[in-house]
Nucleic acid binder design. Sequence first.
DNA 1: TTGAAAGCGCTAACAT
DNA 2: ATGTTAGCGCTTTCAA
Lengths: 337, 337
Amino acid sequence: MTVQRRRHASIIDVAALAGVSVTTVSHTLSQRRPVSAATRERVLDAIAELGYQPNDLARSMRSQRTNTIALVIPDITNPFYTSVARGLQDAIQADTYFGIVCNTDANPDLERKTVEQLVKRRVDGIVFSGYYQHQEDIRPAVSVGIPVVLLGSHRPKEGYDVVNGADHESGAEATRYLIGRGHRRIGFITAPAGSGAPAVRVDGYRAALHEAGIPAEPDLLLRAPVSGDGGAQGMNALLDLPEPPDAVIATNDVVAIGAIGAAHARGLRIPDDIAVMGFDDIEAARLITPKLTTMANQSHQIGHAAGRLVLQRIAGEGPPDPQEVVFSAQLRRRESA
Amino acid sequence: MTVQRRRHASIIDVAALAGVSVTTVSHTLSQRRPVSAATRERVLDAIAELGYQPNDLARSMRSQRTNTIALVIPDITNPFYTSVARGLQDAIQADTYFGIVCNTDANPDLERKTVEQLVKRRVDGIVFSGYYQHQEDIRPAVSVGIPVVLLGSHRPKEGYDVVNGADHESGAEATRYLIGRGHRRIGFITAPAGSGAPAVRVDGYRAALHEAGIPAEPDLLLRAPVSGDGGAQGMNALLDLPEPPDAVIATNDVVAIGAIGAAHARGLRIPDDIAVMGFDDIEAARLITPKLTTMANQSHQIGHAAGRLVLQRIAGEGPPDPQEVVFSAQLRRRESA
DNA sequence: TTGAAAGCGCTAACAT
DNA sequence: ATGTTAGCGCTTTCAA
């Protein structure tokens, strides 16, 4: 660190130092019109000397594009979402688009505000994933024509595309698997609010119970915060029931791992005393003891597909109708169930 | 979703619809000058009707502030960094500042480019954490006076503050612990490049060996990618040595877990055949079998402190000298060592 | 090969 | 209580 400067140099400073017009500076940078070798060199020297970095705010004012794609996720500490983030990052051309990640902490109010912020900041595209999301949340973006891709079992609608994880089917498959192993009292720990992937997984669970002629008992459907602690709370509540379940499905692996911890703390053995399943197949699912049986979601591919979709919309390509991409989940049978 | 609009409405559109000047619109929004109740209502109606969202690019052009704080991390899938992100988010006032997370994928080139991007986008502050970072990387930000907080065992210097994790001491403590348990051939899996926290942990390791009169054997210091796979590679390389180590310290828990996996794959028992330690105490450290002995870093507090520091600098408060905040690490003795 | 000037959307003097 | 206008830093006609 040698030089210390107070403020940003502007293109005017560069022009003055190089003894040319701002137009010329602009064009040596953009290469959108020929500049004589001598001039170019003087300009580049001035840029180097001033440590000039073009102001992208001003550029975006003119071009009406920010070259920014935002990913909005409810929980940055959940490996599923960070894997989605990596997939998205791999899809957007890093030399053109700048990817930013915004964490909403599974807070409905923050989800709404974050989208508003992104609209005000004029991002070029939004990939939105929220546990508690309301379609309303993304409306400010959709209504001004910002391409939006929604993650997590929503129907594609006019104004946004959707990438889903076959949540109905995988909720049903998890349930069928447990039924096949002889379980009849199957609990489900889901998210507090009722939309998006968690709700659809519950729908699948209910459908599979119904298929098997098992009545869906309301007590066995438990709402808890989507976190390890929430999973523990949920498991404890289920075990405190007069007739506790003999198997529990959690809305994702983080919750499932919390649930297993709570069961262990009560001295229960898994899967003998109680079987547990999750969704996502995060890395920890393979690391814990017993290893977690789970429905593996293709998180990286989901992020990647979302990135491709949003880029396509930004480019004005793609069909006029909203698109839906679905990634199936796969049962990973391990020790916990 | 009802309304579908082509483009963003501007303050001029609002003014026209409300039949007032843009100044009045601006002031009903900012409340920085009185507006009659009747006028205010007409303006608010127009805003609602147009779905107007002020253009923050334009605002930032005028105010010279973007109200944005960026966190740059090398690996968004590493729980340590996401915990730092949560800590940072808890520190910045969400109603004023917008926090964004940028993942550099532990790619030196991307680290540099990301900082340049952030400078061009005129973020108000940067919290930068990079495994391979060179002081040079943050120079474009420092030289234009953007407050920067560096994470990961750097010395505070003119132009930026620092939040550290007592890496020298914790590297030494981990090593001393293993020595105390009778180990003499202690391997260390570190990051490929040589700066920041990993390097300082290695320094501490060397110091502790020296203290104990154990020669530091170059073969036992292994450089590998900072990832689970890297940990596996490193462990395999160490075990292939003519005289393999009887204990291994990994530069963080993710690497340590990969190393344990590789040892297991070879049929080795942990800690009997080989002891393993990590740094960070991520959640998975407690979940794996055997549980990982590790030096717990206060990730959330580190992020929080970084946030407070950067806010302080943005506000122009704080001492003129660069500051350093250090969080000590704590040994979490578990089964793996 | 180069320049002058308009305009992107907003805020804040400076009017009235 | 409200309006006119300069200017933030850039790109891009239009002109020379």
